[in-house]
């Protein structure tokens, strides 16, 4: 009995296309990827894309226009499983960065003035789960090769990845790096999802948090620790917000108030 191949679509909304590129960059495995699954749509890799029913849709990028709302809703309707891949799709990305006391419409106007957009109407950047239900999240900026291949292969077998979030510090210690935070540097390792293998710290650069926040991260403690190390509170909050997307804003705002 031969099983039908899993139908997969890979889509890009607003982002740098780094996640789709990473999938293409799995050179050694590319033949296996294309022979194991029926890749119905993958604009970066092929023409003749079909927008039909899907088993799995991998979506990168955030939603920043009204047309993308329609697009993401259409994908959701066609796909049994929707996976947000990369930082933009999972939390909104840098374009969805939290900015206190700002009104998006006003910011937009200050950049574009009264320019009329005829193609589609721009809106404030949001992660895809602001509009549709998402089944799985694959964070990363971009996603990691091992992480993607592991996820992809498990999903082909019908098995979602085991949810086991760990911060960058875990890989960092396994690689026997010196803790930059302890040395007084601005490192966001403890708040950031691992998967990159602590690549920056391996090269003696602090973690900037590009994989996005990890579940259960202790923002309050890290904030006060950085403050004690001499960093300016506003600077800390800005840096915390950089890659944290739209969801974390209130948390950052409440850090100082959050008291037991």
């Amino acid at each position: 009995m031969k099983k039908d191949k899993v139908k997969i679509g890979i889509y890009e909304l607003t982002g740098c296309a780094g996640d789709a590129l990473l999938i293409l960059d799995c050179e050694k495995e590319l033949i296996d990827i294309f022979s194991a699954a029926d890749i119905q749509s993958f604009a970066m890799a092929k023409s003749d894309n079909i927008d039909g029913p899907l088993d799995i849709a991998l979506v990168e990028g955030s939603v920043t226009t009204e047309r993308e709302i329609e697009e993401i809703k259409d994908i959701r309707q066609r796909a049994k499983i929707v996976v947000a891949i990369g930082l933009c799709a999972t939390v909104g990305g840098i374009q969805g960065r939290y900015k206190p006391h700002s009104v998006w419409e006003a910011d937009y106007k200050s950049v574009y003035g009264e320019t009329e957009m005829t193609h589609t109407k721009p809106i404030q950047s949001q992660p895809i789960d602001a509009y549709i239900e998402v089944d799985y999240y694959l964070p990363g900026c971009p996603i990691g090769k091992d992480q993607f291949l592991n996820f992809f292969t498990r999903m082909l077998g019908g098995n979602p990845p085991e949810k086991y979030p760990q911060p960058v510090c875990v890989s960092c210690k396994h690689n026997e790096n010196d803790c930059l935070l302890t040395k007084g540097e601005f490192c966001l390792g403890p708040l950031t999802a691992d998967g990159c293998g602590a690549i920056c710290i391996n090269h003696n650069l602090p973690c900037v948090g590009c994989w996005g926040p990890i579940e259960g991260a202790n923002y309050t403690s890290e904030y006060h620790l950085l403050k004690e190390k001499g960093f300016d509170p506003e600077f800390i909050k800005k840096k915390l917000a950089n890659f944290s997307g739209t969801k974390i804003g209130k948390l950052i705002e409440s850090i100082e108030k959050e008291r037991p």
Binding site: Q166, P167, C169, V170, K173, C179, G189, P190, N218, S221
Partner: peptide, 17 residues
């Protein structure tokens, strides 16, 4: 213990080392 819990970054470093 609550005090320690408030501060712990849950980074796992103590365990690795």
């Amino acid at each position: 213990w609550e005090e320690l819990g408030e501060a712990c970054l849950a980074c796992g470093s103590c365990t690795s080392v």
